[in-house]
Design a protein around this nucleic acid. Sequence first.
DNA 1: CGTTTTGGTTACATTAATATGACAGTATGG
DNA 2: CCATACTGTCATATTAATGTAACCAAAACG
Lengths: 230, 230
Amino acid sequence: MSVAKRVLIVDDEAPIREMIAVALEMAGYDCLEAQNAQQAHAAILDQKPDMVLLDWMMPGVSGIDFARRLRKDEVTADIPIIMLTAKAEEDNKIQGLEVGVDDYITKPFSPRELVARLKTVLRRTTPKGIEEPVTVDDLTLDPVSHRVLSEETPVDLGPTEFRLLQFFMTHQDRAYSRSQLLDMVWGGNVYVEERTVDVHIRRLRKALGERHDYLIQTVRGTGYRFSVKN
Amino acid sequence: MSVAKRVLIVDDEAPIREMIAVALEMAGYDCLEAQNAQQAHAAILDQKPDMVLLDWMMPGVSGIDFARRLRKDEVTADIPIIMLTAKAEEDNKIQGLEVGVDDYITKPFSPRELVARLKTVLRRTTPKGIEEPVTVDDLTLDPVSHRVLSEETPVDLGPTEFRLLQFFMTHQDRAYSRSQLLDMVWGGNVYVEERTVDVHIRRLRKALGERHDYLIQTVRGTGYRFSVKN
DNA sequence: CGTTTTGGTTACATTAATATGACAGTATGG
DNA sequence: CCATACTGTCATATTAATGTAACCAAAACG
């Protein structure tokens, strides 16, 4: 695996978090922890984990409410969630699936089972462009080798431009405002000028060259869009 | 912008409230003010602001207690809160996030930072309306990609024409006066000549071309209408 | 018909938004 | 510690969009 996946563990009981964290780290994942919904939310915006392990029962905002909230917000809607439930109640399962949880595991569970489920969900939900290369009109971005090719020729991009292009190529035909782009590409809690986006767009276009810069389109009064169509 | 968002500023020091209010109003927000928790609570029930800026330290009920109270009550639970804290103590941050505050800013802060945070929080928490494409006789407007297609061919529109067409396509078969259109498309409190509408109608028709300009119909003595029927 | 209204069109000055180039402060990797 | 690459922000240039007025065309009116 190229880069370790990051998993956020949300549970109010520290020992349980620890146990899970140990199991996952042995399996090669990076772990983040949160003991309640608020901490979790902050961590998600901040760190963009690849997956969330969410305890069903928590004081304050319950796991299910939290999951619902995550699904509503565009920024967090795509993050896979696995629910941890104490008892194997059918109710939980149904409710959870309704909210859009990707899987659920009933306690107690073995580390092996956990890792197995996690792997499955990640494989199922990881979209192209995260580990599969994406190609558009002879422009290829390969996340694994962290490379961009324009008709076989390597394109030289800075880290930010790379992420920007990756985001665009995995979210085509959609207009994004500057502040949305800041959220999605820069990350939730950073404060930078909106105009900075323009500059990076410029750098990206320049790097793509005449052959491909048409892909990055200005949507006046709104922001930018990536699309093959003119 | 459709309607200005209303922000309630809660701080016991009038000069600070003023400063914040000025900054926000310049950024296009409507401001309400309260100097303690009681006033704030009344204002919230009364005016339903879209967001609350809450000072951490206040005589009487402290900001954090007040936030907790707001979160408990179903009526006020969904209103986003940004905390203003004097010192950058981690404690505050954690406690605040636990209570369910959406973000926090440490004083002193620049107006720009404040506005930026506010914008981010509002965008995260404001549910967006359903953005489905609308199609009429092979003319499609897609709000997501911010595009208009006439039989697969992109139609080039300025921002105003886009909004105008969007309004029409979602309000068909109904005649609107010029001043109604100004209200709905331009926004409530701008003053422009009524005849300006004519010009934009003209631009829209031109852009739609012969294939589709019949959709924009003149209603003599009244205004305009969008309809498939002639 | 001639006149009066009302809408259509065009040209144009102004304003607003985006593109671009340069710079200084920071990370980064030797 | 140096050399180099990245970032974010400005100031400025460029371009697009906007609103208005002047003028033209078509109905309505008598």
